[in-house]
């Protein structure tokens, strides 16, 4: 019984943190224009993928965060869901097979995952006919900047979390 409550508590904690991340992304994106280059839900998906190291919880987190993003962004449901699910799985696989504790490895991984996420989302938009990429140059520039910014923010967030974890341990 206690174990069940503990698991339920963990699920609630995850759900609240995922919703909070999507809301923070929306609110900061409105307040600070530079925040449109960041993707907090993506960083969280990668983070849990790396730290959990197990694909199933990572893809569930990716799916949940992606669906909430889709619903609040007004894009077809499943666009970011598909992308974040795949990223969650790849991050978990990468985390279990490679050493992602090094900051350089983390930064490169976040950069590449951001590019991958952007390519998947834009491709799905084109395939479903809901988006028309008019300017490939600006999309590419946006993705590269986004990758760079996400890598820097991810490093900062991972670093803070590592310190907190070590301190509490």
């Amino acid at each position: 019984m206690t174990n069940r409550i503990g698991k339920f508590g963990l699920v609630v904690k995850f759900a609240i943190s995922l919703i909070a991340v999507v809301l923070i992304q929306g609110i900061l994106g409105y307040r600070l224009r530079v925040f449109e280059y960041f993707d907090l839900p993506l960083i969280i998906t990668i983070y849990y993928g790396f730290t959990l190291g197990r694909p199933i919880p990572a893809v569930i987190i990716g799916t949940s965060v992606g669906i909430i993003q889709d619903a609040l962004a007004g894009v077809p449901l499943g666009t970011n869901g598909f992308s974040k699910t795949l990223i969650g799985y790849l991050a978990a696989t990468t985390g279990s097979k490679f050493d992602v504790d090094l900051p350089v490895a983390r930064a490169i991984a976040i950069f590449l995952f951001t590019l991958g996420d952007g390519i998947i989302v834009n491709t799905l938009g084109l395939v479903t006919g809901t988006a028309t990429v008019v300017n490939y140059t600006s999309i590419t520039l946006h993705l590269l900047l986004s990758g760079l910014f996400n890598a820097l923010l991810g490093l900062l967030m991972f670093g803070i979390h590592d310190r907190v974890t070590h301190a509490s341990a």
Binding site: G26, I27, A73, G74, G125
Partner: peptide
Amino acid sequence: ISRSPASGSQTVT
């Protein structure tokens, strides 16, 4: 009150 939480999508709430 907020912008789109998904990058690449230009929406507001």
